[in-house]
Write a protein that binds this DNA or RNA. Structure first.
Lengths: 198, 198
DNA sequence: CAAGCCACATACGTAGCGTATGTGAGATTT
DNA sequence: AAATCTCACATACGCTACGTATGTGGCTTG
């Protein structure tokens, strides 16, 4: 048992993050109580402050986890496409659909930026944004896109996608407006193309 | 002095909103203390709870005020353009530039959505969004744009613009990246056009 | 096996929100 | 015009919840 101590710590961190994820998604950052949250994890606030410093630190850890999951999911979708351009559209569509998840919305899209500041300044560096930028850069090299700044394009694309998702989720009939959002997204994204597509 | 009472109330509401605007912009919604804020306005929390119900109500009032100012400013910019399409681009550019104001960012873009929920559900109904949708609808009627859902297009445009602004503001050298953001915005927006423009 | 360390628990201080109640200056009534 | 009423705001209180300071039991190390 050389590393029993380390293992316990990892385990407790995971428990806290899991409980926090639930609490933040359910009640929002401000509404979530640290006492309740830690009790749900079978621990106390002591563990929390030792591991994450403060409430914001815990949110950062949760956001990081969800963001990572989103990025890898989007990558999967993008990889299935036949070319990079279709891949970019697929990634965007994937973001829109993922952002329909209340957990993603509440934690990553609403409380995340409000509490932690702009996504580009997050410790996690925002995997989603990074992935999109890489795809854009590939498309710029192959001259599929107009010569735009890759970071700017990535920001605009993800901004549009995530905002569209917020709209869809807030609407009365999400199932009906989702295709409209995706249509509009694809139309706007095609504005980045160097040549017109049908 | 038939309406002395009404006038006093309006005045006090204005004082509170002004103080709140400052406090929210400076310390964020969560960080702003109601006691401090009301003291700055020369009043107490009693006035605040009587007029706005709770802290969220006060934020809603502040957001409403700023949002209105933004919408009228954007309209001015749009009206100066030579046609509706240039007007839409001008509005978008105006949003990007306005969103560089820390007050707008902190209050309307970050805390607003986090505390009050999706902008389309705000009591103010989000004047900015509304204005953009009207412009889009005009362009749809004159068949300048592809047949997209006007609400979706408006959401995506403002989402892209505001997200671009957050990026610009968070960057090391805002003056340098601002034109990049505007370029990318115009490119993406042109994706909504029915026919390609040079 | 003994001494130390460390991850976590416990206990405390404090700030700030919302509510319940009080009050005095205008508005209303006769 | 005087008395009463109304209501916008002040005052006082309770409660929740964050962060910190201190304690402790079990692993770790020599």
């Amino acid at each position: 048992m050389a590393k029993r101590r380390q293992e316990m710590m990892e385990e407790n961190r995971a428990k806290l993050i899991a409980a926090a994820r639930k609490a933040f998604a359910d009640k929002g950052f401000a509404g979530a109580s640290m006492d309740e949250l830690t009790a749900d994890a079978g621990l106390t606030r002591g563990a929390l402050y030792h591991n994450f410093g403060d409430k914001r630190g815990l949110l950062a850890a949760v956001v990081n986890q969800i963001d990572g999951e989103m990025a890898s999911r989007a990558k999967e979708f993008g990889a299935r496409a036949e070319d990079d351009w279709q891949g970019l559209l697929a990634e965007g569509t994937a973001y829109i659909e993922m952002a329909l998840d209340p957990e993603v919305q509440r934690v990553v899209l609403l409380d995340g930026p409000a509490v932690l500041g702009d996504p580009s300044t997050w410790p996690s560096q925002n995997s989603c944004l990074h992935a999109t930028r890489l795809t854009v850069e590939r498309l710029l090299e192959s001259e599929v896109l107009k010569p735009v700044d890759p970071e700017a394009a990535a920001r605009l694309l993800s901004g549009a996608a995530l905002n569209a998702a917020l709209w869809v989720a807030a609407s009365d009939d999400p199932e009906e407006v989702l295709p409209k959002a995706i249509d509009a997204f694809r139309a706007m994204a095609s504005g980045l193309l160097a040549v017109t597509e049908p």
